[in-house]
Nucleic acid binder design. Sequence first.
DNA 1: CGTAGCTTTGAGAAAAATCAAAAAGGGTGG
DNA 2: CCACCCTTTTTGATTTTTCTCAAAGCTACG
Lengths: 238, 238
Amino acid sequence: MRKDIHNSNIPVRCMSCEVRHKGICGALSADELQALSAHTRLVNHEAGDELAGEKMPAESYATVIRGVVKLTKTLEDGRQQIVGLQFAPDLLGRLNADENAVSVEAASDLNLCRIPKVALERMVKSNPALAERLMTQTLRELDEARDWMVTLGRKTAAEKVASFLLLIATHLDPEATGDRRQFDLPLSRADIADFLGLTIETVSRQMSKLKAEGMIGIVANRHINVPKLSKLKAFCGS
Amino acid sequence: MRKDIHNSNIPVRCMSCEVRHKGICGALSADELQALSAHTRLVNHEAGDELAGEKMPAESYATVIRGVVKLTKTLEDGRQQIVGLQFAPDLLGRLNADENAVSVEAASDLNLCRIPKVALERMVKSNPALAERLMTQTLRELDEARDWMVTLGRKTAAEKVASFLLLIATHLDPEATGDRRQFDLPLSRADIADFLGLTIETVSRQMSKLKAEGMIGIVANRHINVPKLSKLKAFCGS
DNA sequence: CGTAGCTTTGAGAAAAATCAAAAAGGGTGG
DNA sequence: CCACCCTTTTTGATTTTTCTCAAAGCTACG
């Protein structure tokens, strides 16, 4: 399952964050950003890489520059559930935790900006604006988790798949406008099933059904287009 | 559905918090506690009272002194999902939010310590220890939400009901020790179903099945005993 | 071109939902 | 304290949804 890892461990300024003024860097002064840059590393991972294991010691933080990260939990007998997806410019890692509550995996090829545990924690202590920004991200994650609980607990298989497609469509390119969307799924059918609490077969059947109903087009396995996002949204139940 | 509300709006020191040094009050100095006490009110609610509506303006915070609070989300067509339960000494209310993301209801009879929105937010700004404590609670809620996503997405009906009973057994009296437990369910079968993403009938059947297998005893409708908590835990899958 | 890994499709089985009705509690007023 | 009513819970029969098992079709890649 796990492929070779090719990291480019070159120290860099986190230009991506700085320029776009997103993520945690937006809460930093020029001086702080400069100081932080000394500790950060741009690293790359390929789809399938495991970045951190459930119940393993937490070693560092990282912000997502490009790609999608999946957070999973696994039952004793191997049943798996994806409990969150992280997109740029989210911060990976749980503040002040010694141990990971979830397993962290690259869903797609990734660029991350890695930050040592102590460096970030020191900076959070001295910068209330940064602490507040982390609180905001945590609250957003909590909202997303609760929204997904409704999907898992109360939606039909068809609504679950539609909700997933809507989530991806709106998160992959948040700036996109208009009612028509086109994108590549960052997750395999198996991952989608683990996200939705379904089997691969049910996911596949519901995708075919949505296609037959004209709700979506399946250009290639992973390449989807949505002619009317508003129609898809209405179908999701909320 | 909504019953009459009988509130005793008498200003008090939040002795319950102070004495037990739990919840947010544990992060406050004597002076701060004194100052906060001037703004707080002990209020009572009965089971079924709606404390705050989904998408309604957020008006105040409150800590749970006694009882259980349920957080729910509802789809357009009325399907409902409980997305969280709060026990003493949790803080109700989302920091800095103008609008509720969830509906807040008294699951059982309640005693709350109510805190005005501005009073708490001012105190959080000037007290990093309090901010950190709120961050800790939020992270715990996120963990709980993600754990529950696994239950909703990947467990069988029997495992879901067992997981719910385990949750209640361990949360109602966190100090209890030993492998035998006895408690009153703070939720009706309908609420349990909404928490587990099941129907009332399925919950009832699985409870009967757990009883038949000797996993639990049903003394009265709401009164449950668990002869071996470890056995129940093992049955939950994780 | 062949192979390995995904994905789709099909048929039958299992789990949970739905519809229906009986039983059990709980509170109220007599 | 009891009889009654209303609500909640349990149980039963049937239907629907989703899963499981099986096989075929696709894709990508060496």
